[in-house]
Structure formats: structure tokens, C-alpha cells
Computed example of a mutant assay.
Amino acid sequence: MNRLLEAVVENNRQWTKEGKIATYIPELGKADPNTLGICITTLHGEEYFGGDYETKFTIQSISKVITLMLALLDNGRDRVFSKVGVEPTADAFNSIITLETKNTQKPLNPMINAGAIATVSLIEGKNSEEAFNRILNFTRKITGNPDININKDVYNSEKATGHRNRALAYFMKSTGVIENDVEEVLDVYFRQCSMEATCKDIARIGAMLANDGVLPWSGERIIPRHVARIVKTIMVTCGLYDASGQFAVEIGVPAKSGVGGGILAAVPGRMGIGVLSPALDARGNSIAGLKALEELSKELDLSIF
């Protein structure tokens, strides 16, 4: 398997020359565009690697999977989905237009920025510090990595430049979707996006979801099976933003991307996959990462369809 992953990396390294690194968060612009790494974690806890799999990156929107799980644990599905929908979108991940044009005025799904911010507002904690620490500790648990922490430079950069996210949050405050203090909610959101991980870490999250909520390396159940299924379903329909349908056709597994260049994938009953390549397409998805996953999906027949 290691040989296959190294071959996949070499076959697709040319694609790192395409696309652009996200610079609207200035600190992300410092990433090396030539990076390409991949990791697989099986449901037996075996791990395989290829390329630059040890490179750390901020998980950005991959964190939306984590906070959705935690919000469902804290509130139950009815409460969560009274605040955020489950429908795909053809608009960009940071679009504000559907908040005003849809009759419900709630975000379409938890994988776009507005939906993720609404989801974060539901996580229990008496203040932003306590809420974020619950997210951080949960992330450490599901990755088996007690050293995961935030990249403070990226956090400060996001907080200083996150004007669109503030607009989304304050609009949702005005319609009652967000009930808590907006700046506290945003602080948690900026922190969660700034958590730093490797391909191995996100592959482990994928493996837990692929294993219906059970950690493959310990056998411990982390989330109920029905929560894992909800999360994987939304990953299939919404996890790659407005490219989710194309991803389902070409690769066909539950996945979530982030503008840090990472992609988390969960192949039900088989494995979790973590991929990193920072150069993005116009929709905010890793170009080389998508190409590597496409080749891997064909080689191992991973599509769930």
C-alpha cells in the first residue's frame, strides 16, 4: 500500500503547479505549493503513507465535520437542523446571498461558512474559551494526537481579516439563527479553523467515521452510529462546496475539503484518507489532492455508488 501511495503522489505531483494558494487569509499564503502528501488509516488501525504526509497545515473547513459531530452530541439532530439545513448549494462557500433569499433564512448546510458558524454557536460552553477547548479536546481524542493545537499566526490572521464571516454571523444574529454573542461565536470559529494537523490526523478522523463512530485503534465508540451516518451523508452532498456533485461522480466517497489544502475522506467500512496539497481551484478545493483521490478511488474501487 505504501508503494501505491508513493506512486499516486508522483503521478499527480504535476498538478501542484496548477491553481493558487489561498491568500485572502494572509498567513495561508506562506504554504509551499509543491506539497503533496497522503495517508490511509484502515479500520484495523493500519496506517500507510506517501509523499509529504508529515507536513502540518491548518485544517480550516475540515473542522466543520468536527464541530457538526459535537453540536449533534450536545443538542440532538432536531435542534441542530432547526438552525441549519442539509441541502447542497451552487453558491460559493462564503456566500451571503441565500441567507436573505431563502424563506427560512437559515444557512443551507453545515459545510458552508454560514452553516458552520451557526453550528458552532450550538456547542456548549459558558464562554468562547470553554467551547473551543471542548472542540480541541474532541479533536485530540478522535485523532489520537494529544499535541494538536492552533496555529496562532493563522488564528490572528483569520480574526483580523474575517470580515465576510462577521457579516454572515451578524446577519444570522439579526434573524435569530445565532442566539449567542456574535464575537464569542466567531472567536471559536476562527480558532477551530486554525487547528494544525497532518494527513495522518485527518485520515484517522475519516477512519472513525468510516467505522460508524468507533476508533479503529482502540475500539472505543466516540459518537453514535446515527450521528456518523448523518455527518457522512452531508459530507457526500455538501463537503466539496459547489463541486460536491462532480466529486461524487468522479471519486464517490464522503469527503470534506479545506482552503488550507487538506481533504478528509471516509470510505464506509474500509478506511479514512487524508490528503494535503495547498494549491486550490476556483472553488477552494485542492487540485492535486482531488487528482490523487481520483486515482486512488479508481485503483482501490472506493466509490460508494
Score class of each variant (00 low, 15 high):
residue 23 T to E: 15
residue 85 G to W: 02
residue 145 N to P: 12
residue 167 A to D: 00
residue 187 D to M: 08
residue 192 Q to A: 03
residue 66 I to M: 01
residue 29 G to L: 08
residue 13 R to H: 10
residue 195 M to H: 05
residue 104 T to N: 11
residue 79 R to D: 13
residue 237 T to D: 08
residue 26 P to E: 05
residue 186 L to F: 07
residue 12 N to M: 07
residue 6 E to K: 13
residue 208 M to E: 01
residue 293 L to Q: 05
residue 106 K to T: 15
residue 237 T to Q: 01
residue 127 N to Q: 13
residue 180 N to L: 15
residue 139 T to I: 00
residue 236 V to Q: 10
residue 252 G to A: 12
residue 8 V to Y: 08
residue 252 G to R: 10
residue 63 S to H: 01
residue 132 F to W: 03
residue 283 R to G: 10
residue 146 P to R: 01
residue 126 K to A: 14
residue 3 R to T: 14
residue 39 C to P: 04
residue 145 N to F: 02
residue 228 A to W: 00
residue 166 R to M: 11
residue 292 A to K: 00
residue 70 L to N: 00
residue 231 V to C: 03
residue 304 I to V: 13
residue 265 A to Q: 05
residue 56 K to W: 04
residue 56 K to M: 10
residue 103 N to A: 15
residue 253 V to A: 11
residue 48 Y to M: 04
residue 218 S to Q: 07
residue 264 L to I: 03
residue 222 I to P: 01
residue 209 L to A: 02
residue 223 I to Y: 04
residue 130 E to R: 11
residue 58 T to N: 13
residue 83 K to T: 06
residue 116 A to V: 07
residue 117 I to N: 05
residue 223 I to R: 04
residue 116 A to C: 07
residue 106 K to V: 15
residue 106 K to E: 12
residue 55 T to K: 15
residue 23 T to A: 12
residue 222 I to A: 02
residue 83 K to A: 10
residue 19 G to Y: 12
residue 52 D to M: 08
residue 11 N to W: 06
residue 287 I to S: 05
residue 141 K to L: 11
residue 69 M to D: 00
residue 174 S to Q: 09
residue 107 P to W: 09
residue 98 T to Q: 14
residue 68 L to C: 08
residue 2 N to M: 01
residue 201 D to F: 07
residue 272 G to E: 03
residue 213 G to E: 00
residue 151 N to C: 11
residue 120 V to S: 02
residue 252 G to M: 10
residue 177 V to C: 05
residue 7 A to W: 11
residue 96 I to Q: 01
residue 163 H to P: 00
residue 188 V to P: 03
